[in-house]
Simulated assay, not measured.
Amino acid sequence: MIGYYVHHHGSGHLHRARSVASAWPGEVTGLSTLPRPKGWTGDWVHLDDDAPADGHHDVTAGGHLHWAPVGHPGLSSRMARIASWLEAARPSLLVSDHSVEITLLARLHGVPVVAVVLPGDRSDPAHLLGYGVCEALVAMWPATARVRTGLPPDLLARLRCVGGLSRFAPTEPRPRRTEEAHVAVLWGRGGDGPPEHELTAARSRTPGWTWTVLGGDQWVEDPFAALLSADVVLTHGGQNAVAETAAARRPAIVLPQARPFDEQHAMGRALDDDRWPVIVCRSLPEDGWSTLLERARRLDGHRWQGWCDGHAADRFVAVLQEAGGA
């Protein structure tokens, strides 16, 4: 049996966990502040929240950790809960997606850890410490993608790039339609989406295009049907949004958002490459929407094959088995 720590911010970490758990041949216990997801077949350890930090000082332990607010009862109880589970369950391995503190806690219990690496500058002391104690590191992009991590050579040697991991099986792109075109705005629930007034202005400047917003107040559990029907997807630079756009084989306009460690901007720089059917924008344009959408519409969605081929979860499982999870 293995454990899988699921970070609670947004929905991408949970989507990854569910995909890997479905591909894993044995039992997977989830550990998270999030409630047990529908369809999860293994055990689920629900953790107390350790936020906010109001009234608690030194949340980074002098820059050596990411989140360890002094005197926070939620932090104390969640760590005690995980420690109790580690002692009782004796997992063969823990997946950390991702918390440096929980990575260290598991390793100090003698449990091997495989951690998920996100894009961006991960060269700070806390990341280097957490990744340094892991048996292996997994990244959800193809090895051919030029994604910046800031990791030194010894840690890059442990990094296994499994490709874009989507909940949905990749599909062949449908033929281009001649009737009214459709743009899907794919935004998660973990961050701010495009301002409504900017989307309204874009709609008014794009006659012949239908707009569907998926995210924020209009978030939906399963966006894939809307992605498949889109001629262009407008999305942020999160890994799951990119992977699901890639699985739908739809050309994309990617608008990276500000995130810690420059995460989405690092993804945007990697996607700004002729190999991928993407136009990367720093901000939403005030004018020229019709031209931008038509440019994106002409990109070949088949080119996403190199990013997301539908086998990322199986490769992830292979890494876990090699690391001792079997």
Rank of each mutant, 00 (worst) to 15 (best):
169 A>V: 09
314 D>Y: 01
305 Q>E: 08
168 F>I: 11
135 E>A: 12
74 G>W: 00
322 E>C: 01
40 W>D: 11
165 L>T: 10
165 L>Y: 13
133 V>Q: 09
292 L>F: 09
19 S>L: 14
280 V>S: 10
187 W>L: 11
155 L>D: 04
202 A>R: 09
74 G>I: 01
206 T>R: 07
107 R>C: 06
302 H>Y: 03
7 H>P: 00
55 G>Y: 11
179 E>P: 00
234 L>R: 07
126 A>T: 03
222 D>Y: 10
199 L>E: 07
108 L>F: 15
45 V>E: 07
227 L>G: 10
50 D>K: 00
296 A>N: 07
208 G>P: 10
316 F>A: 13
309 D>E: 03
69 P>K: 07
185 V>F: 14
260 P>A: 06
272 D>Y: 07
141 W>Q: 09
270 A>R: 06
53 A>E: 07
206 T>V: 04
186 L>E: 09
184 A>R: 13
206 T>E: 03
216 G>M: 13
36 R>N: 06
116 V>E: 00
10 G>M: 08
102 I>Q: 07
110 G>W: 15
246 A>P: 06
186 L>Y: 08
87 E>H: 12
203 R>V: 11
44 W>S: 12
263 E>S: 08
274 D>E: 15
296 A>G: 14
280 V>C: 13
12 G>A: 15
260 P>I: 01
179 E>A: 08
277 P>E: 09
305 Q>C: 00
63 G>I: 04
87 E>R: 14
281 C>S: 07
75 L>C: 04
106 A>G: 11
302 H>V: 01
163 G>A: 08
177 R>Q: 04
143 A>I: 04
151 L>P: 04
241 A>P: 05
314 D>L: 12
107 R>D: 07
252 A>I: 13
307 W>R: 00
259 R>I: 05
120 G>K: 07
138 V>A: 08
116 V>Q: 00
256 P>K: 11
241 A>G: 15
264 Q>G: 10
84 S>P: 00
138 V>S: 08
89 A>N: 12
251 P>T: 02
211 W>I: 06
202 A>N: 09
124 D>E: 15
9 H>P: 01
221 E>H: 11
15 H>G: 13
292 L>E: 13
194 P>Q: 04
200 T>N: 09
251 P>H: 03
40 W>A: 10
236 H>T: 14
260 P>W: 12
211 W>E: 11
